[in-house]
Computed example of a mutant assay.
Amino acid sequence: MSKTSIDIQKRNRSEWPKLIDASFFVQLPQKIQTCLKSHLKRSKNGNEGTNLKASVEKGPSTALGLNLEKQLQHWKENPVWTEQPPEIKVSVPKGSLCKLSVEVDVGLPPDAVYNIVIDPDNKRVFKNIKEVISRRVLLDEGLRQVVEVEQAALWRFLWWSGTISVHVIVDQNREDHSMKFTQVKTGFMKRFEGCWRVKPVFVDEKSCFPFKPKTWDEYYSCTGGKGRIGSKVSLEQLIQPAIVPPPPISWYLRGITSRTTEMLINDLLAEAARIRGISEPKKSVGEPSEQTSYEHQVDEVCDIKERWALRRRNGKQYHKKFP
């Protein structure tokens, strides 16, 4: 190679830094990190619905919890909600008294419903809880708690009533809005266990017609951020005495259990209505209560579906008198 060619190559190499700054390759990773951070920051401050969609994928409590106050406000602005009777299925697994499976839609967002269910002072809501004898937190992980609870519970069936001690370990997890319970030790009751679950429901999805939202992001968008979120509440519980009594005693006990569970659901629905801002008109002192009299008649009916049908008919007549 000639001396002239070597001089040209050296001169060209010396000019490379002028064309491409070598520090660019060193700074490239840092620039990428800065760009990504900037993009994530813009996404965080951007569309609220998108943020909520990402939160829903992590867990419902994160998304709905952040907007619980706003959701409750939507419900108070539009409290229209038609209560439907719960679906109650009673089965009799071998060796047990009964297994109850209940589903009902509630006009409140999941976090609000869950707050009612796990409230340590929920005896003010659930009338079948006479008193909380003891309550001890065994584990606290923020969203999840394990609690030991002993309660004195009331039961009522037709003209019979009484109390029973309920001592259970409760595993409550706000991440998926579940609450599992199982008895502490066997005795009269060999097995007593169950689980509450609360899932979100898009109440105003009809306003999106003909589009049917499948995610919170889509629902938020098509309702303009005003869409209400309700809850689908399910309760399953298994009751197995140490000795299962023969019929007809087992029939009566099964009826007591079904009635007590129905009372729980009624109390939950009543509290949800109160939170939405719905209350019955005040009556003057000494005025006879037609509602109370009718409720007494309803309680005399043994069939659950028939009781709910009577309540709905009575509710329509009651609201006609007091619009």
Rank of each mutant, 00 (worst) to 15 (best):
K58E: 08
W75S: 10
P86N: 14
Q71V: 00
H74G: 01
Q73V: 01
N78H: 12
F126V: 00
P109Y: 11
I88N: 02
S61E: 02
P85T: 13
K89C: 10
P85Q: 14
P86L: 14
Q73H: 13
D119Q: 06
V117Q: 03
P93W: 01
T62Y: 15
G95W: 00
V56T: 07
F126I: 00
V90G: 01
L72M: 13
P109Q: 12
V92A: 07
E103L: 13
W75I: 07
D121C: 05
D121T: 02
K89G: 11
P120L: 07
K76D: 01
S96V: 01
K70Q: 15
L66Q: 08
N78S: 14
K127T: 14
D121R: 08
P60I: 09
N67Q: 12
F126A: 00
E103K: 11
V104W: 08
K76V: 03
P110Y: 05
I118T: 15
A63R: 01
V104E: 10
P109G: 09
N67I: 12
V106R: 04
S55A: 15
L100T: 09
V102A: 07
L108T: 02
V125A: 04
I116M: 14
A54V: 06
Y114A: 03
K94P: 03
V80E: 15
P120Y: 11
G107W: 09
K58S: 08
P120T: 01
G49F: 10
K70H: 14
S61V: 13
K76A: 05
P120F: 11
K70R: 14
P93C: 04
D119I: 01
P93A: 03
G107D: 06
L68F: 01
K89N: 13
P120G: 06
K89S: 15
P79N: 15
E57Q: 05
V90Y: 03
P86E: 12
I118M: 10
L68G: 00
Q71E: 15
P109N: 15
L72P: 00
L100Q: 06
H74I: 07
L72I: 03
H74M: 12
P86T: 12
D111A: 13
D121G: 07
T62H: 13
I116F: 06
G65I: 06
A63W: 02
G65C: 10
L64R: 05
K58H: 08
K127S: 15
A112H: 07
S96Q: 04
T82F: 13
S61P: 00
E48F: 06
T62V: 13
W81D: 04
E87W: 11
S101R: 03
E77I: 11
A54E: 10
E48S: 05
K89W: 05
L64M: 09
A54K: 08
I118Y: 05
L68Y: 02
L108Q: 08
T62K: 11
G49H: 11
Y114C: 04
A112E: 12
E103A: 15
K53S: 09
